[in-house]
Design a protein around this nucleic acid. Structure first.
Lengths: 153, 153
DNA sequence: TAATGGATTGATAAATTCATCATATCGCAA
DNA sequence: TTGCGATATGATGAATTTATCAATCCATTA
């Protein structure tokens, strides 16, 4: 299963990012959709990468230099995350003079982030509300001790 | 960073899934949004979990028994993935007699999957189109040998 | 052309995730 | 209350991901 992911054809192993933008990286076409989707989510499953995509959702293109300043990361660390984002075809790199600029490969990437935010708001709303009610229910009434109240329902 | 994820307060460690549905699991509220988002994507970053969510997007509630039949997984394996989905507040479990039924915790979960599908369609469209043009360009013309063609541009 | 800043790649150890097997729990029926 | 089907949990090794450090690559300037 994870072995399947490792089978991705990398046709462009030794082509520099800025000459490779958007090139077919994964032989996704023949795989079941849920595998391809899971793979997409893997690409998004790291705070740094989400952060980068959020920055790129706000400004059309951003240089690595700026990303470094924004995130305070070590260059090679950021670079590896950018590499992951590229492999997943989520961003595109372009070299201008001595700097490299990144942008979202598709505006739909921003949509995905925005929909995920909506979902998170829902989740946090409800869970926080539950936290509050769990904590507040034994309001001024007697509460045996500082033990965490069991869920009642 | 991953250490931060491990700090999640699990208030309900020993509460059974069907008594715990939707209870606040993670102390997400105080974390930067990009961490929470990345965490959400982590929950989605496995083919089995995506599959389960897709099934649940189609039918309002599904029993574990049915999921087992659908996926052909080993019971304990599926169970662990369901556990992950629960921890991320993506699904809710409910016991009816001897069986356990799952459903999406929020309809927005289905939205997220659907938006991600749209993005994937875009990506696959373009990358496949590029594959085709890469392979087809040297049509009947001379091609040195079976070496992988370097990207030209 | 040598030196330098900007960025990527490679190697590696630590942390995390995953599949599997064994064990435990829950509800129900015998 | 014993046994059983349905699920969940625990433990563990293998695979994967990640942060860090060293080395490399590319474009520009000295």
């Amino acid at each position: 299963m994870t072995a399947a992911d490792a089978l991705d054809l990398r046709l462009d192993e030794n082509v520099k990012p800025w000459n490779r933008d958007g090139m077919a990286q994964y032989s996704d076409a023949h795989r079941p959709l849920y595998e391809v989707k899971a793979n997409l989510f893997k690409g998004l499953a790291h705070p740094v990468r989400v952060r980068v995509l959020e920055v790129l959702s706000a400004s059309p293109t951003v240089s690595v230099t700026d990303l470094l300043a924004d995130t305070g990361l070590e260059a090679s660390n950021l670079s590896q995350h950018l590499s992951v984002l590229r492999r997943h075809n989520l961003v595109v790199a372009e070299r201008r003079a001595s700097q490299v600029f990144y942008r979202l490969a598709y505006p739909e990437v921003a949509d995905l982030l925005s929909v995920s935010r909506s979902l998170l708001v829902k989740i946090l709303e409800r869970t926080q509300q539950q936290l509050v009610s769990t904590v507040n229910l034994p309001d001024i009434s007697m509460q045996r001790d500082s033990e965490i109240a069991p869920v009642t329902r």
